[in-house]
């Protein structure tokens, strides 16, 4: 599977202090336009560089609602990740995503920073996601073996991660009785 194209979007263009739902709704329009401009498998990297404060209300309007749209599938295979200089900046965003039962990958601490999950993701799903992110790509069978769980259970986990746009899937054997998939991390 070819590498997806990542485009960075600096959210500081809306100001350093991102606070109200009104402002968040306006920002969402711009963000959706940027998302639509991506290729079908493109990735939007939402950079929080230069931001002083990101409130839960702004975050929910601008980012939470976009995550909801992404998980509904209307933006195809496009993905969204966040890059934040600090963990405390995304605290309220994480809470809002959890309220929506959504999750988002966030790199904390610059280009060499670590990836963490914002929002709500059950521990088994986090384990599966971390394993896939480590490997870059894997089949359900391979993941199930490493995690020591049944393939069906693993399949259910990965399907949930795909729906949340935290991993991507690729059909690898459509001729087989059951279509085979390979799953890919969306972050390096």
């Amino acid at each position: 599977m070819k590498a997806m194209k990542a485009t960075t979007f600096e959210i500081s263009q809306f100001g350093r202090r991102l606070g109200t739902r009104l402002e968040g709704a306006a920002a969402r329009c711009t963000l959706l336009a940027a998302l639509d401009d991506l290729p079908p498998d493109g990735q939007l990297v939402l950079s929080l560089r230069g931001i002083d404060v990101l409130s839960g209300s702004f975050a929910d309007e601008a980012i939470g609602k976009i995550c909801q749209l992404l998980s509904s599938g209307i933006h195809g295979d496009r993905t969204l990740v966040v890059a934040s200089p600090s963990a405390d900046l995304v605290e309220d965003l994480s809470d809002k995503l959890a309220q929506r039962k959504l999750a988002l990958l966030c790199r904390v601490g610059g280009t060499k920073g670590t990836w963490r999950v914002l929002g709500s993701l059950a521990r088994p799903l986090v384990d599966t996601l971390e394993l896939l992110n480590e490997r870059g790509s894997a089949t359900t069978k391979e993941l199930a073996e490493t995690l020591a769980i049944l393939p069906n259970a693993c399949h259910n986990r990965v399907r949930r991660l795909v729906r949340l746009r935290l991993v991507r899937e690729e059909k690898i054997d459509v001729a087989a009785p059951n279509t085979q998939y390979r799953f890919h991390a969306i972050v390096e």
């Binding site: 202090r17 606070g19 109200t20 739902r21 009104l22 002083d52 404060v53 990101l54 409130s55 839960g56 209300s57 702004f58 405390d88 900046l89 605290e91 309220d92």
Partner: peptide
């Protein structure tokens, strides 16, 4: 810095509750 940011988020939420 960290408590200051948290406090500002409190202000933002409580202030906007009034017009909303």
């Amino acid at each position: 810095e960290s408590p200051r940011r948290r406090f500002l988020r409190i202000l933002l939420e409580l202030f906007q509750n009034i017009p909303q």
